[in-house]
Design a protein around this nucleic acid. Sequence first.
DNA 1: CAGTATCCAAAAAGATACTG
DNA 2: CAGTATCTTTTTGGATACTG
Lengths: 114, 114
Amino acid sequence: MKHEGGSCFKAKLAIRDTLDVVGGKWKLVLISVLFNGKKGFNELTRDAGISPRILSKELQELEINGLVTRQVMDTKPVTVQYELTEYSTTLHEVLFAMEKWGLQHREKVISNKV
Amino acid sequence: MKHEGGSCFKAKLAIRDTLDVVGGKWKLVLISVLFNGKKGFNELTRDAGISPRILSKELQELEINGLVTRQVMDTKPVTVQYELTEYSTTLHEVLFAMEKWGLQHREKVISNKV
DNA sequence: CAGTATCCAAAAAGATACTG
DNA sequence: CAGTATCTTTTTGGATACTG
């Protein structure tokens, strides 16, 4: 046995904690889209391919968890800019690892299917 | 702008690909549990805290994606051992990053709430 | 023990119309 | 443009009994 019960238990909990914050179908995708820089609401809707209802909910959760800021701009029809926070940079490692894995996995699947 | 449209699009797709394979509530948790070594079905049920129906489904998907092997042992009441594959090691970076993030985030939340 | 079948509850997602 | 309300559908999960 490599790990004793305690450390595995901890690992499992930590994974769960992370999933509670950025799990689900959209959050990491949204963060990766916002990596480009600020975006407006409808822009995000289009870029991520998400419906407004869900986007609104996801953004609120991301904001609550300190990963995104929402800034109301003083424009004629009010606009809003969503932007990643400084804290969100702590997720880079996760995002980068997932992006890398997705790419290599796609390669692998493609080559196995030829 | 740090990335041009193309690379962001690619990043988004890669994240999605990864989520398609190991997204959801259970897969990464199961993998982290199997990190300990082989486990039987009921053992996994207990360790992960998952119902048999879901466990069965998740394991099948993990097997299909080449992340887990299922080995039927030649014992009196048949037993089965689930084990991570060599390929699953490609996920270590993702798992490790998520574990690390979960830990630091918990720290952060706790200290902010004191 | 391993796993499936059945049934049910809850969560997540999607489409779309509508409001300031 | 930003976002909410409403309604519907799909997905996901959980309890539990049952089978080889």
